[in-house]
């Protein structure tokens, strides 16, 4: 029974890691740069929702606050690409990476100034409630996280494989030049990918904050999600989710059965193992070009 509860809470935190990792992979595939502020995007998304719905702040209805927060993050993502990154077109990837690290710092301190550096928790309708199934007590929040992640994954899958816009995003990530030749407006598509990754970050943040307290340095969780993305193969969306789940499961299990402190290093131990034995990640998608 204990074991099942560990698994469920592991899956729940794995889903959050997986969603942040998804954001990394989306941006990486579209722009070939890593957005190190992805964890901070998640944190900001959580705080925006919290600021809208918590009684200390605006006190809006939770179900109204969630979509507003998601839309705000999507718009921020779009504007970041449109207003900042587009002017860095042609610069090396390193400078874009450093820029995102700087943006991460700015977001962290901005959030601290607006919402204080103290940990706060998001007031959700399902906070503190739980159900017991045959002796296993499961938190409502954990079940909600798993269900929302499943639904979001399904929605993203349909979006990328069925809609014209999703296909165009795939096409421009696989061969940007060819997408240009086909008349796909690649720059606008890239901004839309940033919007999508902002929206996904907001969902991850809201889920994360519903499970426990959040403070402005929660964005550093992004490092773990980065490991998840690397385990999954950094170019593969399902890989990112699986990587997140692996890390989410390893943490509570190694904390329960391993030596003290082991749970902190276990995710990175797995990362090293994957990189040594499958350097491309578990779901690597590499394709050589034929001449």
């Amino acid at each position: 029974m204990d074991f099942i509860q560990l698994i469920v809470s592991g899956l729940a935190s794995g889903c959050v890691y997986g969603l942040i990792a998804l954001g990394f992979v989306l941006i990486y595939k579209a722009t070939e740069a890593v957005n190190f502020a992805q964890g901070d995007f998640m944190m900001i998304g959580a705080f925006i929702c919290l600021g809208l719905t918590n009684q200390d702040f605006w006190g809006l209805n939770f179900w109204l606050a969630v979509p507003i927060a998601i839309v705000i993050m999507a718009v921020l993502g779009y504007l970041f690409d449109w207003g900042v990154l587009r002017f860095m077109f042609g610069q090396s990837q390193v400078s874009i990476v450093i820029l995102t690290i700087a943006v991460g710092f700015i977001l962290r301190f901005a959030a601290g100034t607006i919402w204080s550096h103290e940990p706060v928790s998001l007031e959700t309708p399902f906070a503190g409630r739980d159900i017991s199934l045959g002796g296993v007590v499961l938190g409502f929040d954990e079940i909600a996280i798993i269900i929302v992640t499943l639904l979001l994954t399904l929605a993203l899958f349909i979006f990328f494989s069925r809609t014209k816009l999703g296909m165009a995003m795939q096409a421009s990530s696989q061969n940007q030049l060819a997408a240009y030749y086909m008349g796909i407006p690649v720059k606008r598509i890239q901004s839309l990918v940033w919007a999508l990754s902002g929206a996904v970050a907001a969902v991850a943040g809201i889920l994360f904050a519903s499970k426990g307290a959040i403070d402005p340095s929660a964005g550093l969780l992004g490092i773990k999600a980065f490991a998840a993305a690397a385990i999954g193969g950094f170019g593969s969306l399902p890989g990112a989710l699986v990587g997140g789940l692996i890390i989410g499961l390893v943490e509570p299990l190694s904390a329960r059965y391993g030596a003290p402190g082991f749970s902190q290093i276990a995710p990175y131990g797995i990362l090293i193992l994957v990189l040594v034995f499958r350097p491309g990640g578990l779901f690597s998608q590499t394709q050589k070009k034929k001449v």
Binding site: Q170, A171, Q174, N175, A178, Y181, Q287, K289
Partner: peptide
């Protein structure tokens, strides 16, 4: 139609 095909390999 560009030089060297330039298809979308994974699609």
């Amino acid at each position: 139609v560009p030089e060297g095909r330039e298809i979308f390999p994974l699609m």
